[in-house]
């Protein structure tokens, strides 16, 4: 079993790791790098709990191989806040009580940020369809959608 050496950038920091060929990016983040913010809800790309950004593209980390991180730039939930200043989406999720158990929350935040980066003024329908790849079993999505709307407004206003 020869391990693969990978150099990549995670949340702006250069990172090197070794992994097996079959290990997913999610395995690497969680088990090798201690970044457990991305969750495994299914391992098959159906729940979005493992959402991360790879070179500015929203992906399910459970569907990407760790070795594919070579030379790329990866962003995870752990890098979303700026130091101790939360991103407006994080603040609005808290204010709107957009999480109950919270296990889906990192995935939703990463996905919602990707939406707002691309489309600062989404309609409710656009938000709902963009977030359709992220499952939440607790909230019925109502407060999540409102939090994203509110964060979008704040980001536009500032």
């Amino acid at each position: 079993m020869s391990a693969i050496a990978v150099s990549t950038t995670i949340n702006g920091d250069e990172v090197e790791f070794l992994c097996q060929a079959e290990e997913t990016l999610l395995d690497v983040l969680r088990e090798r790098l201690g970044l457990t913010g991305a969750k495994e809800g299914c391992g098959t790309g159906d729940c979005g709990a493992c959402s991360v950004m790879v070179d500015g593209r929203l992906v399910c980390a459970c569907l990407v191989l760790g070795a594919e991180a070579e030379g790329r730039s990866i962003e995870t939930i752990e890098g979303m806040a700026n130091g101790d200043e939360l991103h407006p989406l994080q603040t609005k999720f808290l204010e709107h009580a957009a999480l109950q158990c919270g296990v889906c929350t990192p995935g939703f935040l990463v996905a919602a940020k990707a939406l707002l980066d691309a489309n600062p003024d989404p309609t409710e329908e656009e938000i709902r369809f963009w977030l359709a790849g992220n499952l939440c079993r607790c909230t019925g999505y109502d407060k999540i959608v409102r939090a994203v709307q509110d964060a979008a407004q704040e980001l536009r206003g500032s």
Binding site: R30, L35, T36, G37, A38, K39, E40, T76, I77, E78, M80, A81, L86, Q90, F93, L94, E95, A97, L99, G102, V103, T105, P106, L109
Partner: peptide
């Protein structure tokens, strides 16, 4: 009243530890 939950920041920053974490 409706204050922010005490475990909230950990949950929006990915720090909260669940079963597999």
């Amino acid at each position: 009243t409706r204050p922010v939950r005490p475990d909230g920041v950990d949950k929006v920053t990915g720090r909260a530890r669940y079963g597999a974490d």
